[in-house]
Amino acid sequence: MKGIEIYIAIAYVVLGPLLGGLLDGFDRVITARLQGRVGPPLLQPFYDLRKLFTRRIRPVNRLQLPLIASHLVFAVLTGVLFFYGSDILLIIFVLTLASIFLVLAAYSTGSPFSTIGADRELLLMTAYEPMIIIALVALFGVAKSFNFYEILSSAMPIYLYLPGIYLGLVFVLQMKLRKSPFDISASHHAHQELVMGLTADMGGPALGMVELAHWYESVYLFALVLLFFSSSWVSAIVGLSVTYSLIIFLDNVTARVKWQRALSIAWLVTLVAGAGNLIPFYLISRGTP
């Protein structure tokens, strides 16, 4: 098995952005249709990225670019470790490291929009992390492993055991994917009150790197969702499509929350859907060794 994992990890480095960009492209097309617009072509995200990289680099200070590049490096590394079959709990902590580089890049500018965006991003990280950790622990509880492939091949209908945790995870993925109602730190829409917040002072290739990192991240976030539906091909396809549609649907029908409420809402969901699912599951499964 170890041999294949290495190739998947390498394939991820090469093909990850392609997949991530396509996910983004479909998202834009579907969103446009939901809103009764024609929308951009499917490959628009790639055209955007190419354009960003043709621009000249003009950072705001000498710290900004190294921090953004580090963000990209560690976002890719998180995915590589993930698909290499490393401990997924460790990987989530590495993911935090990647996010922190981005937050620091925004803080370094000192500008009001970036700073508030960075503050809010930290708040969101605090909001979603407990749920992700609880989800991984629960996955371990079912599959007795922290290895992506071992959980994948356990072929159990995990969504049936952990429905609350699945819903909680989708809930916090809205934050991680910068979707409404939680696109408070940086939004795909320039009309957000912080003028892109976190990325307000990033332009050209710097913004390109952030976008690229985002594509890399979304690939293994969806791979994480896949773990809940790995019992059969049908359930995998249905589960992923439903999750993807659900995320886009929520993005379109919800209004942005106030930042003050993001944390309490997410923690409440984590306690009710996450811990509320984990504890009974743990009690029941303790009887069966």
Binding site: D119, M125, T126, L278
Partner: peptide
């Protein structure tokens, strides 16, 4: 585990904002 998850997420918040 739940306590550890909430506690360590909060830890990220107060250290990272200081660093920022």
């Amino acid at each position: 585990i739940a306590a550890l998850a909430f506690g360590s997420a909060t830890t990220v918040l107060f250290w990272a904002k200081w660093m920022g």
